[in-house]
Design a protein around this nucleic acid. Structure first.
Lengths: 192, 192, 192, 192
DNA sequence: CATGAATGAGAATTCATTCAT
DNA sequence: TATGAATGAATTCTCATTCAT
């Protein structure tokens, strides 16, 4: 069945792209990893860029969909932020390859494609912004520039699984608490 | 004169690498940008990687040296953090190419080189960690894991000039205030 | 069909290497001679050196195998020597390119490869040495150092088709007689 | 003084060419070995080929001159042959670099140059041929084709110092005896 | 005389892509 | 659908040669 092969190629490409970056990864590597010939890659995907596109955009869509779901729940903005961090950290730990790809490959492709990625990013930022604005309205969040705040939040999230932040084995609960606390309260000690 | 040419090549390479990423940038592009022949590149640098190395390591050294200078001043940890953010934001705005290179090219080269970059990174983190620990002793900073906190601080700094965070023309003062406030106090509004 | 192409490349490489020496011969020349693209060369062979290796080692193997066959026949050492010279001279005349390659290219490649060639050479020398020793036992050959004698024999053989030794059109029978006589009896006239 | 530099370059080139073959040897290597700049090489020699030419032709001239001197002595052909072998073996052992160059580099250069080398070779062969003819007249040498015999003699001589023929430390006296005996009497045992 | 710097043609090799089977 | 073979443009790097100082 064609679809099995296609999925197998996508999985292999995910692995190869996460380990090698867009230009260093070759179609030959992906074909070998998938156990198919290079010709087969081109039967399923028009080009290397299209294959990469499929992976990145579907990954970003996956995140955005979850962000939207959480944003639409009838809960406080603080709860939403906690849930988003929890989802983000857990997903990136389980699925570290996607994080690697998003962190390292984004501006390595055609401008056309970059624009589509940027749009997805803006969608994420927009969702976060709305949550921030909800928090400001609820008086649980400070009146900082909501867009900038949203960007910092997104950055903190995607940094959460970088090798720099992890001591040894990633403990997702601890990680979530750390990011949430860092994001909400900052690092200064306010005594009263 | 040799040194002028070398510096000209470094500048051109800085530009080309920042716009194109390590693999997409070619020696031909750098040569053309510098107005010299490809052979001249190889007279001054042994290889493409060495040219890249020179740029990245000297950039990281520049940052680290400033971080050390600030860390050694006889001032409170809060002042140090403010100064570091101020320096970082200003430098990255003035010199946005370096930020692009550091953000996008780091894991594209030989393992040997990656290790040297990692060492420089660890040096930065170590400096920040000591400032955090000073703050904890001075009771102006919360008892969070100092290393993780240092990593988040470094990340916030290097994100500060990403295209996502900037509206239009970058206003460094505003940017510094935002990052400092975000880092110190987080986003939640604590009223009492 | 793949195998035809591969053989065609080998033939073309044989020609180009024999006319040009390892460093002067370029992959572009071989590709042009074979009527394929440079990329095709690399589909069939990993590198220039591997292509050269294939030619040289298979050539040496061909000689060694024949030498072994002759050495194992149940005939006198003198007959063996005659047969070897006959085979060598004939083959080198028919296949003069191989002789050119073996004479001129041997020490132009990686040390690793040189060692493999040396081993083949030693095999030839060893076979000849045993024939010499057989002749000494049979009292038809003088008690000279058998290894040195074997080397001289090999040299005489491979020189046999050098341009220096041939007047015009090579007449193999005459050539064989000359080499055999030279080898067995030397040049001095012993009258008694 | 210019001449010292020129001689120093020639010595360095001799070394580099003997270790590396014409195409693998680079002007940079020769310059480094001589401790001068590449520019200096081009002040003293017009091109790489001219530098090589100087070495090879002067080497061949040196041999030819000695061969002529020996040929002109008023001694028997057998004595001449012994003296030539003695001179050749000794010189090649003492000066193994020249042998390496002559053995390995000859057909790697321009046709024009090859012709000049060929002429020198023919001169050697001619000298040897005359000695052989003298021997035939003196009835001490068999009536073999004198030219071919001369070529084999030359070959035996230049093979004498190849790594294949030498056990460990070259012992010139033994070597001379072996070559002379091989050349004069061949390997077969003639009992009478 | 000597040099360091610069040049550019050409080398080996890689790789996305195509296509007959 | 799938493959192996073929392509050719692009890439890094080398090296003989030139030349102002």
């Amino acid at each position: 069945m064609s679809n099995e092969t296609k999925q197998c190629i996508l999985n292999s490409a995910l692995k190869v792209f996460s380990e090698n970056n867009y230009h260093a990864a070759s179609m030959a590597m992906i074909a070998k990893e998938a156990g198919v010939s290079k010709g087969t890659l081109y039967w399923h995907f028009d080009s290397k860029e299209e294959l990469f596109r499929e992976i990145v955009l579907s990954g970003l869509d996956y995140f955005n969909q979850k962000f939207i779901n959480i944003a639409e729940e009838e809960i406080s903005s603080e709860e939403k932020i906690y849930k988003i961090i929890n989802f983000g950290v857990t997903t990136l730990i389980e699925n570290s390859q996607m994080g690697d790809i998003l962190r390292n490959n984004v501006q390595l492709v055609s401008e056309d494609f970059q624009k589509r990625i940027e749009i997805k990013h803006r969608e994420s930022v927009e969702i976060f912004k709305q949550i921030i604005e909800q928090g400001i309205k609820e008086k649980s969040i400070k009146k900082l520039n909501p867009r900038k705040t949203a960007v910092m939040m997104l950055t903190a999230l995607f940094t959460s699984n970088s090798e720099w932040l992890i001591d040894q084995t990633p403990d997702s609960k601890q990680q979530v608490e750390f990011i949430y606390s860092f994001l909400m309260d900052g690092i200064s000690r306010k005594e009263n």
